[in-house]
Amino acid sequence: MSCLQTIQDYGLRAVGYGERLLPKEDFTLCEQFTLIGSGMIWNVYFGVLALILGFFFANALAMAKGSRHLMLRKPAEWFIFVFRGSPLFVQFFFGYFLFLSLKQVYPIFTPFTAAWLGALVVLFLNTAAYSAEIFYGALRSIPKGDVESADAYGFSGWPRFRKIVWPTMLRLAWPAYTNEAIFLFHASALVFFSGFPSWQQRGDALYYANYFADKTFNPFVPYPIFAGYFIILTLIIVSIFGLVNRRLNRHLPQEARRKMKLKMNVIR
């Protein structure tokens, strides 16, 4: 079977199209590359959606944590503490368990026990907590002068927040947020590994890497392929975030831009 044929058969296997049965013997490198690559669809899906949704929630959480009102601050603080303080392993376990129990009472929760939605929710909450902490840290380190000048120019309330505070916060938080994004994509590999069941052998890249390692008894081929895919993915994330970073810092002189990038190397 030619490699092109393999790609046709298995390229979309992870989402349920193509050959129903996975290869059983005489595994070729092409099959391993194709199926593990097909599994990457799920890693990208989880990563991208959780990141985008988490971004909005994280902003709200960061504002709440920085709020003067106890009713807003305390829940946000606890939420961030619990999700940052426990391993994702444990979060997946509780997530799955919770959705199962809810499903028994309210049928509306049925799709949540499947990875595509349930794991997404867990990853979303997880990344929201981590990002919120980063944003909160950035919010506190906004130079006092910036806000004072805004006041002097007559900005206040919402316009001041939208035009001055928020963009500055984002600019300060961006390098650390880039790291968080990388970690989130890495974390998506845990979904089928420990948390959620996989249906009809549809899984993420690690699921298929595991499958091949299990069938060939040789871990030295599938796992490096899996690692290679992730290196490429990481490079793509870093360059996209780099572009955004350039846009966020476009008003700064060339020299200051470079410095900005190096300063806050806070990782998750």
């Binding site: 990388i182 994509f185 890495h186 974390a187 590999a189 845990l190 590994f193 690690l206 890497a209 595991n210 390692a213 871990p219 030295f220 796992y223 490096p224 899996f226 690692a227 992730f230 290196i231 993915l233 990481t234 490079l235």
Partner: peptide, 18 residues
């Protein structure tokens, strides 16, 4: 760059034997 780009779990799965 390389080690940072790979999920830690991938290392743990084959690195010890290697």
């Amino acid at each position: 760059a390389i080690v940072r780009g790979v999920p830690d779990i991938a290392f743990f799965l084959f690195f010890v034997i290697a």
